[in-house]
Design a protein around this nucleic acid. Structure first.
Ligand SMILES: NC(=O)c1ccc[n+]([C@@H]2O[C@H](COP(=O)([O-])OP(=O)(O)OC[C@H]3O[C@@H](n4cnc5c(N)ncnc54)[C@H](O)[C@@H]3O)[C@@H](O)[C@H]2O)c1
Ligand SMILES: NC(=O)c1ccc[n+]([C@@H]2O[C@H](COP(=O)([O-])OP(=O)(O)OC[C@H]3O[C@@H](n4cnc5c(N)ncnc54)[C@H](O)[C@@H]3O)[C@@H](O)[C@H]2O)c1
Lengths: 201, 201
DNA sequence: GATCAAACGTGAAAAAAATCTCATTAGGGG
DNA sequence: CCCCTAATGAGATTTTTTTCACGTTTGATC
């Protein structure tokens, strides 16, 4: 949820230690009731007149979403996007740790990308087995996605974070999260083309 | 919309030229009625017994979403993520063309990233003015986001594609599209932590 | 050409989500 | 110590989204 980001960064600045649902709602421009509903859904109760305790809420969200646990992941396809993700340090705050990177390209194997040595695809299976990896990030060309997904699933991966613009099919117990950049692009393209028509509202 | 991606790639393989709403619905696992509703919303009418003409639908979506027009954009922050985006060739299919890249780092200025020469931040304003740029991609550190956004807006940018994990505030006529990677991460973390609890359903 | 079935469009119904209202509770001020 | 304001939690209400159901159209079949 977006609550977590807002609270953890606003809490870091000045510690009022307590925040009201109306404040959160105003900052994220949503309805205050919505905030309270969501919070109570994960068993959070505010206290009248003061609101919610920031730390408490953060912790509850961390627990509810699983950010408090360590999730180890592998990255397949150490290309441009893969390198960017490897270099990104913001994942740790959500409990995600990319512990290995793999690539088919033999020229890349052995090289260091963002402090992570790229491994050969041959070592993928034993690595996942050995470390009990349950999450994989897919940043390969689209052609390879489905094949790699099948391979990952067969080795026991339980979730795939798919940055490839293709829909991949997996058994129902495996989660695929598609990071579709084109969806955002749609919104932008629409705005840019129709912006002149309706400047107001 | 996700329709476009599916149709354009499925249409490329084998040209049945015509597709039924049920087929689309099955592939994207949504309700067939939803497909028809969405299509009719952009003035698309299928014909009984045959369904929809693939090319026709693609074209209508392109027009409706503005993919048929050329959108020129600048990229601010030629770091890891910025380089990946510059290298990505998939934007052209949606009408997006990144025509220039900017960075504060003087060591980067002048160098070529993915065939695009990195420009100095000083030249940002004149460039946008001169070329009438209306879209900017933000891939800078979070600290700089708001300031850059203000600057971009003041020069006439109408939409900002924000890859930064911060909420930025802009005048209402300007569109900000946040590409929040952490949202996807939430879903994954949740699945991984609760997967063992409910293996079925 | 008459019939049949597949797929469409549309309006109603159901479900889900967002919003509003209000009684309740807890601090702050007199 | 009592009242008053501010903020909560929960139920009611409204709005939006999704789904269902049915009449109509259109190509295929006989
Ligand atoms: N770069 C972006 O900004 C961006 C944006 C959106 C989507 N994407 C998608 O992300 C994917 C990767 O993009 P990229 O720019 O990093 O491409 P890239 O070509 O830079 O990287 C792809 C990497 O995958 C490796 N690879 C190819 N086949 C493989 C296989 N079978 N097994 C293992 N590794 C393999 C290649 O050696 C290469 O290193 C693409 O599908 C692209 O559509 C990228
Ligand atoms: N790398 C990822 O996969 C990833 C994922 C999600 C979000 N993000 C976000 O994207 C942003 C960039 O990530 P990155 O990995 O590319 O970082 P990076 O440090 O590699 O790149 C940032 C670039 O911005 C430039 N820059 C800094 N301040 C600037 C300014 N005021 N004006 C112009 N340029 C400036 C820097 O010189 C640098 O080249 C960060 O906010 C990060 O949180 C990155």
């Amino acid at each position: 949820m977006r609550y977590y980001r807002f609270l953890s960064e606003s809490g870091a600045k000045k510690p009022p230690q307590t925040i009201t649902s109306a404040q959160i709602a105003a900052a994220l421009d949503i309805d205050p009731t919505q905030v309270r509903k969501d919070f109570s859904a994960i068993g959070l109760l505010g206290i009248g007149r003061v609101g919610f305790e920031v730390c408490e809420v953060c912790r509850a969200i961390r627990v509810a979403l699983g950010f408090d646990q360590r999730h180890e992941a592998v990255l397949i396809g150490t290309g441009h996007l893969g390198a960017a993700l490897l270099a990104y340090s913001g994942f740790a705050r959500y409990g995600l740790h990319i512990v290995a990177a793999f690539d088919m390209d033999q020229r890349l194997v052995g090289s260091k990308v963002a402090g992570c040595t790229v491994k050969s695809m041959r070592s993928l299976k034993p690595f996942i087995r050995k470390h009990g990896i349950r999450l994989a990030l897919l940043t390969t060309p689209v052609e390879a996605s489905q094949k790699l997904a099948d391979r990952l699933v067969s080795v026991g991966v339980k979730a795939i974070w798919n940055f490839t613009p293709t829909r991949i099919t997996v058994p129902p117990e495996v989660l695929v999260r598609d990071e579709h950049i084109s969806l955002g692009l749609s919104v932008i393209a629409y705005h840019l083309t129709h912006e002149v028509d309706s400047p107001s509202s």
